[in-house]
Amino acid sequence: MDAITIAMIVLIAISAIFVLLGAIGLHRFPDVYTRLHAATKATTFGTIFLAVAVIAHGVYSYTKAGAPDQPAYIVLVAHTIVALIMLLLTNPTGAHAIARAARRSGIEPERAVIDDTREVR
């Protein structure tokens, strides 16, 4: 096995672990807010590593490919970067929107030791 394969295995393994942990966290935690923690953080992190693996693969293939095939790999890497930026911008905002909607629609955080939103409402 060459270096690029080993690097890809490491990146994909990290991504796979966090994606699975995020999905399992949806079932392990008791309420919406704690589930959001697992879902947004772990899956965003996992997807970042997957995208980094794809970018590494694209750069490697670019150096190996012949001149006519090379532009396709530039497009691949550039578009992966755009997709990654979109995910990084939208994921925390979406999580925040869900949390706010859940709190305003009256879902209480389970097993909470402190809840400052109660005094405001």
Partner: peptide
């Protein structure tokens, strides 16, 4: 709200899946 959280997770994973399969 739980269902929306799960849907949001699936959306993120589908984007990742599309990137991986595209490559």
């Amino acid at each position: 709200a739980d269902r929306v959280v799960a849907m949001d997770t699936i959306n993120t994973l589908v984007v990742g899946l599309m990137i991986a399969l595209g490559a």
